[in-house]
Design a protein around this nucleic acid. Structure first.
Length: 569
DNA sequence: GCCGTTTTCGGCCCGACTGTTTTCAGTCG
């Protein structure tokens, strides 16, 4: 896949052009193109070869893409880099420092590194520049600390509970009419940079006071009449906005984003002679709606678009043709297809897992422990696996509401064979195969291993197919096109691993799989009971991947599932 | 640099807050 490569070059070009002070619309064109390429479910090479149109990419950019694919780089990009010292990009990455500020500092002092800038601040040389004073210098210094601490995007699974806690506290301490999480948390992006909260209140001042004095606050970045921003002790930024009742829906749309989606909506509005902003829908100067989100979509001729789809990845086009998917709902999920027990490296017994499932309103759980050779994770011997099967049979006989499936997360060995013989796999209800060793092998080797595993008639699904760990590790080098093709051919499912650091497949790849007709299995990979709660994260990925009830095995009843799982054999 | 149900040229989403200003530019989302 060249998509990431091309997108990265375009993003960089946008940043460089910004420092140069180029036409902002030209810059936006590069960003938009980069984003659309990044969101492509198919290899850009193929899309261009077949002359298919990508929004935001015209003749000029097509030529540039071809050049990147053929030569590995772009003449124009290389020249830009020569023109602009690379360190300037680091300066622009400082919060509060944009292209103008970076340029001014560079022109006066010629520095391009964070360390040099920090030194200048400490020597109070920045406040000597025209248009700069002590406060600016202080803010730049703070920004540098933040960058140095690392402001990488954080996994949704960690941020969601923080958001929910803030909402609970505000509800308790203020007079609120409405309150919602907005931004990328509401869109359920796999990682988020900050938390956005929208409030409707008759006492906005009070809300601002309470918000900026929450116990988690370490810094107040901004505090206005309708908008405040704080930073938590953890370095996380939280923005709060208070709006009037009759524009709440418009504001919620606006603050939920994404930016790209909002731009599309506003463009549609302009074509209809309307103006949409966070204060409502306007015809000329006349307010004509905006109390609920639905009104905004309706005004531009769209059905309601769920937040998870608002990424400008085709939801506008689909909406206009009334072809939006009816997204999977958490309440439609009847079970978890990947939980570890004490038989391998999990902490819970079978009955504890069943009890947790009952508490969560589920009907069944597939208990998939590691296989024999994975010693570090307590791989289960054949003998113990049979004991486990027996225990599950006895449990199921006495349990009327919750059923357990005897499963395994079987290792795909180095040659692509599996870690249990077929006659053992045959006895199991659910087999999910996984690569846990040899991450560093080349693409051909890894792809062959995975493809061979899928050819096994007893393998129902592939666990965490790409192997990536958010913020920690890239996925294995796999030829995903071959993997998907084999999944289709062999009727093998792919997992959406719901563990908060994995979310693998991710949203885009889940959509690709679904488009090809591959069924998905959602599994939490829980090793302790609490982690079964990550199930909702898996549903969020599925929703962002446009998945419907029928695309996911987890929506089946126990009987339907058992019947379905027998089909491959 | 893209794009077209008024356009192949002239538009391109829109507003809040801060800091340094005395009317606004820069940054952010």
């Amino acid at each position: 896949m060249h998509n990431q490569e091309v997108a990265r070059v375009f993003y960089e070009i946008a940043n460089l052009l910004e420092i140069k002070g180029e036409n902002p619309f030209r810059i936006r064109a590069y960003r938009r193109a980069a984003q659309n390429i990044e969101n492509l479910a198919e290899d850009i090479t193929k899309v261009i070869q077949t002359n298919r149109k990508i929004p935001g990419i015209g003749q000029d950019l097509i030529q540039k893409i071809k050049e990147i694919i053929h030569t590995g780089t772009l003449q124009m990009y290389e020249e830009l880099k020569k023109e602009i010292p690379p360190g300037l990009l680091d300066l622009v990455a400082i919060p509060g420092v944009g292209p103008r500020t970076a340029k001014t500092i560079y022109e006066h002092y010629g520095i391009t590194s964070l360390d040099d800038l920090e030194k200048l601040c400490l020597e109070h040389k920045i406040q000597k520049l025209p248009g700069f004073k002590a406060k600016t210098e202080e803010n730049i210094l703070k920004g540098i600390q933040l960058v140095k601490k690392g402001r990488e995007r954080r996994p949704l699974g960690l941020i969601l509970p923080v958001s929910e806690e803030i909402i609970r506290t505000l509800k308790k301490k203020c007079h609120l009419e409405r309150i919602d999480i907005a931004g990328s948390v509401r869109r359920r992006r796999e990682t988020v940079k900050d938390i956005d909260i929208l409030v409707c209140s008759s006492a906005p001042q009070e809300v601002m006071e309470v918000f900026t004095k929450l116990p988690i606050v370490s810094d107040v970045i901004a505090k206005g009449k309708t908008k405040s921003s704080i930073r938590t002790q953890d370095g996380l930024q939280v923005d709060l906005r208070v709006v009037e009742k009759n524009c709440y829906g418009a504001a919620l749309c606006y603050f939920t984003g994404s930016k790209a989606h909002n731009i599309r909506i506003r463009e549609l509005a302009i074509k209809k002679g309307l103006k949409i902003n966070e204060y409502g829908i306007f015809e000329g100067d006349n307010y004509i709606g905006g109390k609920e989100e639905e009104e905004v979509f309706k005004a531009v001729g769209l059905p309601y678009i769920p937040p998870e789809l608002r990424e400008d990845r085709g939801e506008i086009e689909a909406g206009l043709q009334n072809k939006l998917p009816k997204l999977l709902e958490l309440r439609e999920i009847k079970g978890d297809l990947h939980v570890h027990s004490k038989y391998s490296d999990g902490a819970a017994t079978l009955s504890e897992i069943a009890e947790k499932a009952r508490e969560m309103g589920l009907q069944w759980v597939a208990v998939c422990d590691h296989s024999q050779s994975l010693k570090v994770a307590g791989g289960v011997s054949v003998e113990d696996l049979r004991r486990k099967r027996k225990e599950i049979e006895i449990f199921n006989q006495s349990s009327s509401d919750i059923k357990l499936l005897c499963g395994t997360e079987v290792d795909i060995l180095n040659d692509g064979s599996l870690d249990y013989p077929d006659e053992i796999l045959k006895e199991l209800d659910f087999v999910i195969a996984a690569i846990h060793t040899g991450f560093k092998q080349d693409e051909a080797t890894l792809t062959t291993r995975m493809v061979r595993a899928m050819e096994n008639p007893y393998v129902h699904s592939i666990a965490h197919p790409t192997g990536r760990i958010i913020n920690e590790r890239e996925g294995y080098s796999l030829n995903l096109e071959q993997v998907f093709a084999k999944a289709v051919q062999t009727n093998t499912c792919l997992e959406i691993n719901a563990y908060f650091k994995r979310l693998d497949l991710n949203d885009i790849l889940s959509k690709t799989a679904r488009d090809k007709g591959i069924k998905l299995t959602i599994g939490t990979d829980a090793h302790i009971l609490d982690q079964m709660e990550y199930l909702r994260l898996g549903v969020f990925v599925a929703r962002r991947g446009w998945l419907e009830k029928g695309d996911v095995l987890n929506t089946m009843s126990y009987d339907q599932l058992i019947h379905f799982l027998k089909r491959k054999k």
